[in-house]
């Protein structure tokens, strides 16, 4: 079963004097065990596409499936198979790391014992075990980011959807996050991430989808795209792909 399949996906938001096309007919698939990157500047429509994939918002038209389940009609089936990391760490500051993981494990249907076992394994693996009883609000940014990853993994989903996983992190924390994503892929997880960091995409992703102003400019492996479009690095590839599709370089008016 293909982990992610997106066909002619569109999402329009009402706006003054009409509507904003945040996602405008994008199509791609993500294979099992692959790290797939949605690459584009701020306002390209990456977050909107990921929110559709996680079932947070419904598409205006087109179709997206996760392991064969339609995200619009079977959102609960979809969500049980994925772990979502939003741009914000999305943690409850007055809970401890232990309570956070146990809560989400139970919410995803694990028994108390299973949840505790998973929580302990993840906290130990990420070096957070000594901090398990502290309030999340007292943790550093890096520790919170690790905990967010642990929270995504607590129910052992086969698919991870990560929205800008290194945004706002310092170089050390970002490195930890990157290493962790690599480890997860090695362990057989499928990862779909969004980023505007070309270097990160180049380093981590087996394939990328270049998105600009809601439209798909190119899809392929970084090496393949470089070969096809020319350019010294992925940043140059991005500009050439956007130019080739005749898309404007103007900002997309804040649409993410």
């Amino acid at each position: 079963m293909i982990p992610v399949a997106v066909e002619e996906l569109k999402k329009h938001f009402p706006a003054k004097g009409g509507s904003v096309r945040a996602v405008d007919g994008i199509s791609f698939t993500v294979g099992s065990g692959e790290i797939f990157g949605l690459l584009g500047p701020n306002g390209a429509g990456k977050t909107t596409a990921l929110r559709i994939l996680t079932g947070l918002i419904a598409p205006s038209s087109g179709r997206a499936t996760v392991y064969g389940y339609d995200v619009a009609s079977r959102p609960e089936e979809v969500r049980s198979r994925l772990g979502f990391l939003a741009t914000e760490t999305g943690l409850y500051e007055r809970l401890s790391p232990w309570e956070t993981l146990c809560f989400f494990a139970r919410i995803f249907g694990l028994s108390t014992r299973e949840g505790e076992q998973r929580a302990e394994a993840l906290l130990r693996r990420l070096g957070l075990w000594p901090l398990r009883k502290r309030r999340v609000g007292t943790l550093s940014v890096g520790e919170r980011q690790k905990l967010s990853f642990a929270r995504c993994l607590v129910h052992d989903p086969p698919l991870l959807i990560l929205d800008e996983p290194t945004a706002g992190l310092d170089v050390f924390v970002a490195r930890t996050a990157v290493d962790l994503i690599g480890e997860l892929a090695t362990a057989g997880k499928t990862v779909v991430l969004s980023t505007h960091d070309m270097h990160l995409a180049e380093r981590l992703c087996r394939r990328v989808a270049i998105i600009h102003r809601g439209k798909l400019a190119a899809v392929g492996g970084p090496g393949e795209l470089q070969e096809e479009l020319g350019g010294e690095d992925l940043a140059e590839v991005f500009f050439r792909a956007v130019e080739r599709e005749g898309l404007s370089f103007e900002d997309a008016n804040g649409v993410r």
């Binding site: 929110r51 996680t54 079932g55 947070l56 609960e76 969500r79 049980s80 994925l82 979502f84 939003a86 741009t87 914000e88 760490t89 999305g90 943690l91 409850y92 500051e93 989400f104 919410i107 995803f108 249907g109 929270r151």
Partner: peptide
């Protein structure tokens, strides 16, 4: 405001 709503909405809870 804190962004935790996305975490909760992406869980299995309806």
């Amino acid at each position: 405001e804190r962004g935790t709503i996305s975490t909760l909405l992406s869980s299995r809870l309806s």
